[in-house]
Design a protein around this nucleic acid. Structure first.
Length: 789
DNA sequence: ATAGGGTTAG
């Protein structure tokens, strides 16, 4: 028998093509295709072979050829339709897939259980819940509900459309479930933020004894990461290892994401280092994790390494880089990032655009932020909120409010974050009543104030000098059942400092202890500050010594406390101790220690420290540092040198530093210079009562009592609050009455008696006199007595 | 049929 006698039919080629589909062997399949064509029409025009060719090219993702062959088909059966719909689905052409689904029915071909999963997938990705429900009806009518592939796709479709109740109904009604069914349910919950439900389904699945796959574990890890669920996530990692799941990019990324979100960066780094192949997502995860934990240097280093692995930055990488620029106010890096986005066409991405706007805002370039905002076409809620927050931050409440109305005009309804920013904007601009008004408006419109709303108010009120109201809001927050955060506690402590009220301060301290808040560094720092400023250095010391591991901020607070109480020796000792502990002092430390020297009149120590700060610690002095030195120089009567320093320092003098010189003018009877400085000061800060007090004191020192009482009237007219310094004006005023009364010199005892009265009056007004108040008053009184003798 | 990453308020 001759070999040629075997008749090889067209079906054999169909089988061969099917083999190529399984193997995804494009090249072999193309050779078979060539042979079919060579063999002539009997083979090439066979319906089975033609269909198989379409299926082959479709499965091998060769859309041009697949579609061309499909259009040439004389008979389009359910198999070729399924191949084309599936191809369009895989290529992301969901609309075309659905058009195919409709067209096949118009041509009398009934979709089968191979087409339906793709159709449902297309409905899901387009979120066409109406059509999806229609397909669901078709599935039930045609009896495909029992097919686990179809029903799992229904679960997925409902999940993608956000209708979790229906996804669950389909899921629960399924008699036969496989791991994909379970996975689809878990994924549906995770993607819709129902993380706890996802975890519950995962546990049910374990009880049923279904072996998890990479998909299961990856989704479970996402849910754990979103819930900060440490134990669950670690279990997920353990399951991945115990089941010897392949650590591919997706599973690996999920593990890294989990560790990053719960703050275990070292573990994230370890998993990263063990991954054999990494893609842009893997790198981005570690980069954004570094940025979120303010390790910008490490993040940028990772960017360089990523580039050396020949991976391109994408929009996610860029939003991390721009965030890094924002948190460090690095405008140079930010602009480079912005340029990169323009070159690579990434600015059209809303998240990237948002990061660019935020970057410019945080680098104090609000006009540039606005320009970028105006250039965007697609504006989501976050984008509006970012610009709103930028205006609020700097107290441009009018702009913020305009934006708040404009976003509603553009049909973007504000959320709690938007309301919080508007409130913040008012508070930063000193518009306390407007802020409170917005607070009640938001509630009447059905928005529940959250922790940040309350904290914004408490902090804003405390900073604007409404200490009592701040404390009241803190109490109201408890009544609303919101547990305070560290930020709200430090804010309410600031409120106690503002009043100042040792009584409330102690009450808040008691609250902290009762509610078992751990004495964290920021809380302890605020407590030290509060006790010091409310007059109890002993309690400040007690809190300070309670902290076992001390960090720089609490040292700074304690040094500043000693400075305030005139205990410069203790401040200097603590300053030395901190350096012995190996802690490098910062700019704030020097502000405190210099002010201690300045209050105690330790001229040489202060000048030496100032010199050390510049030469040994390589720091650029800020206004406060100059202020202390100016005050030191003034104190020893070196007004010329103080003025020279002000004129040569690298910035315009602020009200505080001029005020400090003004105070010196009082001490040294330089009334002309004092008046000259005052003119500038009232221009700079017309509402700073300290300036009025300082000038009044200068007048008082010169015995010009008419001007003293004029200044008091001026303060009254301008609605300025009385502060502890005002008592000194009164002292001057009353001394004058003494002197003028019968022409005799005032007696020491009587003056002291009067000072005692003043101190009790201060207490009555709610001020807790601190040691320096008493010392100041007494020493000044003595000077007067000498002056009058 | 199912899977991973980035943005806003104190």
């Amino acid at each position: 028998m001759e070999f040629e006698d075997f008749q090889i039919g067209p079906e054999i080629y169909g089988e061969l093509l099917q083999g190529c589909v399984y193997e995804r062997a494009l090249h072999t399949g193309q050779q078979i295709h060539a042979r079919i064509l060579k063999n002539g029409d009997f083979f090439a025009k066979n319906e089975y072979v033609e269909t198989k060719l379409v299926v082959f090219y479709a499965k091998c993702d060769f859309p041009e050829v697949a579609v061309r062959l499909f259009h040439r088909l004389r008979v389009r059966n359910v198999f070729s339709w399924a191949a084309i719909v599936g191809l369009q689905c895989r290529m992301g052409f969901s609309e075309d897939a659905l058009l195919g689904f409709i067209e096949m029915q118009e041509n009398g071909v009934f979709p089968d259980n191979f087409v339906l999963p793709n159709v449902l997938k297309a409905c899901g990705s387009l979120q066409l819940i109406g059509l999806g429900k229609g397909v669901h009806g078709y599935v039930l009518k045609m009896g495909f509900g029992a097919c686990v592939f179809v029903s799992s796709s229904l679960v997925d479709m409902y999940g993608k459309c956000g209708v979790l109740e229906d996804a669950r109904k389909v899921f629960d009604s399924m008699v036969e479930k496989n791991v994909v069914t379970w996975n689809s349910m878990i994924v549906g919950y995770v993607q819709n933020g129902l993380n706890q439900e996802a975890i519950d389904v995962f546990y049910d699945m374990r009880v049923e004894g279904i072996e998890p796959t990479r998909v299961t574990v990856a989704s479970f890890l996402s849910a754990s990461a979103n819930l900060d669920a440490l134990i669950e996530g670690k279990q997920g990692h353990a399951i991945a290892i115990l089941n010897s799941l392949d650590l591919d990019n997706i599973l690996g990324s999920s593990i890294i994401n989990f560790y990053s979100k719960v703050g275990l960066i070292e573990d994230a780094e370890l998993v990263f280092s063990r991954m054999l192949e990494k893609d842009v997502v893997t790198w981005n995860l570690l980069i954004s994790s570094y940025v979120q934990h303010h390790q910008v240097g490490k993040a940028l280093n990772m960017c360089h390494l990523m580039r050396s692995e020949n991976l391109r930055f994408d929009s996610v990488t860029l939003s991390s880089i721009l965030s890094a620029s924002a948190v460090t106010s690095n405008i140079k890096l930010g602009k480079e990032g912005h340029c990169y986005c323009i070159r690579r066409n990434l600015e059209s991405d809303v998240v990237v655009a948002n990061s660019i706007i935020d970057m410019y805002a945080k680098c104090e370039r609000i006009d540039d932020a606005r320009k970028v905002f105006d250039s965007t076409t697609e504006r989501d809620l976050v984008l509006w909120n970012t610009l709103l927050a930028a205006y609020a931050q700097v107290g441009l409440s009018g702009e913020a409010l305009k934006l708040f109305y404009q976003m509603q005009f553009d049909s973007v309804p504000p959320n709690v974050i938007s309301w919080n920013s508007v409130i913040l904007g008012f508070l930063r601009n000193g518009q306390v009543n407007e802020a409170k008004d917005m607070f009640s408006q938001m509630q009447s419109l059905g928005f529940q104030p959250n922790l940040i709303t309350w904290t914004t108010l408490i902090s804003g009120l405390a900073q604007s000098g409404f200490g009592y109201e701040a404390i009241l809001f803190f109490q109201k927050m408890q009544e609303a059942g919101i547990r305070p955060s560290i930020a709200s506690i430090t804010s309410v402590l600031l409120a106690c400092t503002d009043i100042p009220s040792l009584w409330y301060g102690r009450a808040i301290h008691g609250f902290i202890t009762r509610h078992e808040f751990c004495l964290s560094v920021p809380v302890a720092t605020s407590l030290v500050d509060m006790y010091a400023k409310c007059g109890s250095i002993d309690e400040a010391k007690k809190v300070f010594h309670m902290m076992s591991s001390k960090e720089l901020p609490i040292y700074n607070a304690m040094i500043s406390a000693y400075a305030l109480h005139g205990q410069a020796v203790e401040a200097l000792a603590l300053f030395k101790h901190l350096q012995k502990e190996g802690i490098e002092p910062d700019s704030i430390t020097f502000t405190s220690i210099l002010s201690a020297c300045s209050h105690a009149g330790l001229v040489n120590e202060g000048l030496n420290l100032f010199a050390d700060m510049v030469s040994k610690h390589n720091m650029n002095p800020i206004m406060e540092h100059y202020g202390c030195v100016v005050s030191l120089l003034s104190r020893c009567g070196n007004l010329d040198e103080a003025l020279r320093l002000i004129l040569t320092m690298p910035f315009q003098p602020d009200a505080h530093i001029l005020g400090s010189l003004l105070t010196a003018c009082r001490e040294h009877h330089e009334i002309e210079l004092g008046e000259y400085l005052s003119k500038h000061l009232f221009k700079l800060e017309p509402s700073n009562s300290g300036n009025y007090v300082a000038l009044s004191n200068a007048y008082a020192a010169a015995g010009r009592w008419v001007e003293v009482s004029n200044m008091r009237d001026l303060m009254k007219v301008r609605g300025l609050r009385k502060n502890p310094g005002c008592s000194w004006i009164q002292t001057g005023g009353k001394l004058n009455v003494f002197v003028a009364g019968d022409g005799s010199h005032p007696k020491t005892e009587e003056i002291y008696a009067m000072l005692a009265m003043l101190l009790s009056e201060m207490r009555f007004m709610g001020y807790v006199p601190i040691a320096s108040n008493e010392e100041n008053l007494c020493s000044r009184a003595q000077k007067f007595i000498h002056g009058f003798k």
